[in-house]
């Protein structure tokens, strides 16, 4: 799925997959922060986003 998204022009960095156990609070924070930072760096998305109906 990530590959097809990327193929259709969505930046790879917008889609993250991770496996986090409920015991891994630290990893969860790290991943969430990292996702937020990379996506923020890319700026607002304009693909796959429906404009006003």
């Amino acid at each position: 799925m990530a590959n097809l998204f990327e193929h259709m022009g969505l930046e790879k960095e917008r889609l993250h997959f991770s496996w986090i156990s409920s015991a891994e609070a630290g990893k969860f924070v790290d991943v969430a922060t990292d996702v937020a930072n990379t996506v923020e760096a890319l700026g607002p998305i304009d693909k796959f986003v429906k404009k006003v109906a």
């Binding site: 990327e6 193929h7 259709m8 022009g9 969505l10 930046e11 693909k47």
Partner: peptide
């Protein structure tokens, strides 16, 4: 044909589709 699209920049891929 697929490889040709894979080489494109994201913005060109989106334009292609």
């Amino acid at each position: 044909d697929v490889a040709a699209i894979e080489k494109m920049e994201p913005v060109d891929k989106a334009r292609y589709f």
